[in-house]
């Protein structure tokens, strides 16, 4: 595990494991996520990604290993928007602020500011979630997490059910927010391209039991990556024998052992 200064906040996982009854779903997970970085955990369905995120979010009791969360504020976004149907979009965004005891006027003002950045106008904010389109609901869900100014953001397949245009927009919002202040992001996804587009480090998980099989580093700024770069890196990842094995794909094409390094990727 990398050595870091004592003052820099980070999320540290050491030897984290988890079992549901007799079935081990996670074993020996080590992870180090410093402030201002985006790490992605990718893997096939059932590899324990969601369990891992739930452990970090404190939604599940920790069984094995240690999790040290040095970040003061964390927030979550789930695959489904999970908005309260009986609250207006504005009150949904302000939900976490209310939980922190922020007075009504202040939390509404903050929620409105955040919403405006997301292109949500006052009309949309006054509406109930089911009056909003799916895309609007996702924006509200992301705004609800970001308005808390989290220094650790947990994304649980947050973008996987969205169309490409909306995905691109939410990626932009996320990266813009991340450029504003050093927010660490831990995202889990089964979409390699999404991981390659957004993350500074991509950890590939293998199933049964869920463990980190390999990892890749991309040191350039995610906001600067071009589509072509993302495609090339994704292709590079998909040519990696370990990655293919994790996802249960056939052995890589023998012809071209594509040099991931040539497109900016380094094996960790």
């Amino acid at each position: 595990m990398a050595h870091i200064g004592v003052t820099a906040p980070a999320l540290e996982l050491a030897g984290v494991g988890h079992a549901y009854r007799a079935r081990t779903v996670l074993s020996g997970i080590d992870l180090h996520l410093p402030a201002g970085r985006i790490h992605a955990l990718v893997g096939p369905s059932g590899c324990g990604k969601t369990t891992l995120l739930h452990l970090v979010a404190g939604l599940l009791p920790l069984q094995d290993g240690a999790i040290r969360n040095g970040f003061a504020r964390s927030a979550c976004m789930f695959q489904q928007p999970r908005l309260l149907p009986w609250k207006s979009a504005l009150d949904n965004i302000a939900l976490g602020l209310k939980a922190r005891g922020v007075p009504r006027a202040a939390r509404h003002a903050q929620a409105r500011d955040q919403a405006r950045r997301f292109g949500l106008d006052d009309t949309a904010l006054a509406q109930y979630p089911q009056q909003l389109s799916g895309g609007m609901q996702s924006r509200v869900a992301l705004a609800r997490a970001l308005v808390l100014a989290p220094d650790l953001l947990l994304l649980d397949e947050a973008f996987s059910a969205l169309d490409v245009g909306l995905k691109a927009e939410l990626y932009r919002q996320l990266l813009a927010e991340q450029a504003r202040r050093p927010m660490a992001v831990l995202m889990i996804t089964h979409d390699l391209m999404e991981a390659v587009r957004l993350a500074h480090a991509v950890w590939v998980m293998a199933p049964e039991p869920g463990r980190i099989a390999t990892g890749f580093r991309f040191d350039d700024a995610p906001a600067q990556r071009t589509d072509a770069q993302v495609y090339a890196r994704t292709a590079g990842l998909l040519d990696d024998a370990t990655v293919r094995a994790c996802f249960g794909l056939d052995a890589p094409a023998p012809a071209a052992p594509l040099a991931l390094a040539a497109v900016g990727g380094l094996r960790c």
């Binding site: 927030a75 979550c76 789930f78 999970r82 309260l84 939980a99």
Partner: peptide
């Protein structure tokens, strides 16, 4: 159950 989990993740106090 998803909303309950969300409430937990956002640390809603019992009264809220």
């Amino acid at each position: 159950g998803q909303l309950r989990e969300m409430a937990q993740a956002f640390a809603l106090p019992p009264l809220q």
